[in-house]
Simulated scan of single mutants.
Amino acid sequence: MTERSYHHGNLRAALLDRAWQVVDSQGAEALSLRQLARDLEVSHGASARHFRDKQALLDALAVLGFARLNTALADAVDTAGPFAGRFRAAGDAYVGFAVRHPEILRTMYSTKHHPAASPDLIELSHVAMPALVALFRAAQDAGELPPRPPEEAALVAFAAVHGVATLATDDLLDGVPWEDATAATITAVWRGLASPPVG
């Protein structure tokens, strides 16, 4: 494919798509704007018109990652049925994304903490927690969970699910399938949240 093959705006999408492939398979350290340009058979100047440097590309890649993750989580939460099942679906979606794209997820979180992180990235990176808070608040309103600060419940839930994701991607589950580890963790978290608050 030559540079002339790209219509206006398509090159940016093509660069992002190729960057996703590289980071997904090799990690962010392997990413190079010059190599991406060579891969797509365009000039470095053409790619630089869309991304001024590697950090700008990583920022856009993290935005794309959070957008895809947030969509997967929203789809899980928006399913019909008891709130326990919806929480389970969200947990599966999160850990599944981490297992399929461990290097992408690492890049998403490291890039959001970069001093030059864009407002779009910061905003998208904070979407999931309020949605989880809303899920627990709705579960309390429906009588599936006892009253307690939903923000606290969401923090505990995220810590547990992210912990499973980290163990899975770092190959620390001692052969236990990530699906089983996620199911056991989510069941334990929900059981704890469903117990009457102490005191």
Rank of each mutant, 00 (worst) to 15 (best):
A90H: 14
G85P: 06
V95L: 03
V23F: 07
Q55I: 09
D53W: 00
D24R: 07
E41I: 14
A28N: 08
R86C: 01
L31M: 04
R34W: 04
R38L: 04
K54Q: 08
A72C: 07
R18K: 03
R49V: 14
W20A: 04
H50G: 03
A30L: 03
Q35N: 10
A48Q: 12
S47Q: 02
D75C: 15
L64V: 13
F66L: 02
E41S: 15
A48I: 09
R68P: 10
L31K: 00
L73W: 14
R34S: 12
Q21R: 11
V77G: 14
R88W: 12
G96H: 01
S43M: 01
A28D: 07
G96S: 06
T79L: 13
A90M: 06
G91L: 05
F51A: 04
K54M: 03
A37D: 01
R52W: 14
V22W: 02
A56Y: 12
R34H: 07
P82W: 02
Y94L: 06
A84V: 13
A72V: 10
F83D: 11
L31W: 00
A56C: 10
T71S: 14
L69K: 05
L58H: 00
G65N: 02
R49K: 14
A89I: 09
A80H: 11
D59H: 03
F87M: 15
Q26M: 15
L33V: 05
V77K: 11
A84M: 07
S43V: 08
D53F: 01
Q26S: 12
F97H: 07
L57V: 02
E29T: 15
Q21F: 07
L33I: 01
L57G: 03
S32L: 00
S25I: 14
A80T: 13
A30G: 02
A80F: 10
R88Y: 13
A46D: 04
A84F: 14
S43P: 01
H44K: 11
K54D: 03
E29Y: 12
F87H: 12
H44C: 11
Q35F: 05
F97I: 08
D24V: 08
A76Q: 06
A56Q: 12
Q26N: 10
A30W: 04
Q35R: 04
A19H: 00
D92V: 13
N70G: 09
G91S: 05
A28Y: 11
A28E: 13
R88M: 06
L58F: 00
D75Y: 11
A60S: 02
A74Y: 15
